[in-house]
Design a protein around this nucleic acid. Sequence first.
DNA 1: AGCACGCCGACT
DNA 2: GTCGGCGTGCTC
Length: 696
Amino acid sequence: MNESTAPSARRLRVAVPTPQHAGLAGLLDYEHPDALPPGSLVRVPLGRRQVLGIVWDDGDPSEAPPDLKPVAEVLALPPLDGAWRALLGFAAAYYQRGLGEMALAALPTALQQLDNAQLARRLKRKPAAPVTREAGASAAAQAPVLNASQQAAVAAVQAQLALPPQAPRPPLLLWGVTGSGKTEVYLHAAALALAEGRQVLVLVPEINLTPQLEARFAARFGAERIATLHSGLTPPQRLRHWLAAHAGTATIVLGTRLAVLASLPRLGLIVVDEEHDASFKAQDGARQSARDLAVLRAHQARVPVMLGSATPSLESWHNAQQGRYLRLDLPDRAAGGALPSLRVLDLSQQQRPKGLRGPGATPPPVAQALLDAIEQRRQRGEQSLLLLNRRGYAPVLHCGACAWKSACPHCTAWRVFHKADRTLRCHHCGFTEPVPRACPDCGNQDIAPIGRGTERLEEQLQALLPEARIARLDADTTSQVGSLERQLAAVHAGEVDVLVGTQMIAKGHDFQRVTLVAALNPDGLLFSSDFRAPERLFALLLQAAGRAGRAGGRAEMWLQTDQPKHPLYLALARHDYPAFAASQLAEREAAGLPPYAHLALLRADSKDPDTAPAFLQAAAEAGQALSGEQAIAWYPPVPHPVARVADHWRWQMLVESPQRAALQRVLAQWVPELHALRRAHKGLARWAIDVDPSAI
DNA sequence: AGCACGCCGACT
DNA sequence: GTCGGCGTGCTC
């Protein structure tokens, strides 16, 4: 045979979006006439459909299957670089997912529908030219003068940027309270990376927080070089921004957790703001932690990563104590004004406000002393912020005559009474019905709300303070687009005296005229079964305290509690995060929890009550039978804290090891067995492994 | 996961 | 007689 005329097709190994559950390795072989560089995006046939795939490498020709299908189309895009592929390869292995599934999920979905003609049209519409090195440097020069601690933090980034590639770069943990000037440090650090012609990735926990940070970056560096990436974008927007990052025309990429897997060919710096925030851990799909992947990505790319927080995660704090991270402290409130002083109100000692006394009366939402303080603020034209972490009118309805309660027929949960539209709503499955006029069981007319949500708080407070202008901010009042901005504008304009809301009001937004912040019932989180609950509570309360007027000198934070002597509140009153972290770390060590142990959770659910626990039991036995690893603890299956949701029974089992590597090895052996086990448990609806779960 | 094929109940 | 229920099986 004549080699020069025979079309010698190349064999390519392509990552395709086949979930690991399909039993395929994730890489499938295709042929193509020409060599294609790894990272090339291709359209390939898979079964009866065509899918987007990523060329991973040239397969070994000696083990080629006989009949390979040809690549259908090669997308006219620069290939994804080796650093990106290494990151995705690690992430897929670490979180026990298929490589193709993981890699394709990181690409904008709109990319899958585009053909090359459309792609060419999109690429032609180039955004404005990237700012030159000189412009980046001069922008930094216009920036405000930094205080000494801010300068030290920026210098740490500068030093790491100047290191030779192979030198170790410990992640930088920027510790500073609200108002200490973390954002200014990010901006200066970004200017340094931009001045070297590199891209900067900035991660924030929530979509709500992107606009204000985007505005700060745009004002400093120009809007045209910024691309945002978050789930609030339309598919075409998301594609446009992703392409700008991939092409390098966007030099600042700002987004939520999904942005950590963006293609950034000239990455020079990663910033993770509010690094402790639980939103960085995905609760679906591969359940990856964007903060952990950011640290890994920076390490692989040999670039600095800066994690910022007033209340760092215990993992990061521990890493700093161990010398693996470098802690940088911003001790002062740069914007002026001290943190508000904390006043702990012992609820058992407090007088009930007038008008809500007497037998059978609902417990008062606020003690008389707090009510007086709110009224004083109102008369001075200052604002108060009331935090109640429960939306709706009342968490449950109850019949006074029989035992009926507003249970959800599909979940092990109560349906919440929403008075505004007179519905009972399940916050787990969404099941909604009109409120019954009488008890569905016995016909009794006397069905009463038990407990209090923000809706009821607003109503009761209005009765106690008839002249106050009260507004409410929670998921129910901000569901429409633009309504959050509208309501925030009203608060800023001084049209509101008292703002009532869920934790939404504690995050990110500055309220200059607020001089009183009160947490009305935070005790629930003190005794939650979630081992991270105290950490979240401390962060939430300190963050709420930070909302109060940075300018005004007499801001106060009040806290209503039945546990006035609880160590968490005492540490909070002293603004003493290190003491709190030390006590939490001691508890974690004693209990064998992260960061002293590494966890993986196997979750399963089934429509019938028996299949999920039976599958997990078999999985636990299969795990215990695995060879070798000594340092692994296999725990028995237990029901999920909310045992049934949307007619599915949810169970989970925990695997724990003091060594991350040992856990990883055992998971890699275990997962193939789970695929086989799944086939033996027919009624199983779904199962998933959650590596480094946020709660157990 | 998709998307087929493949056999058993209520409808035009 | 068909439309469609989701059980089972495959995708280089």
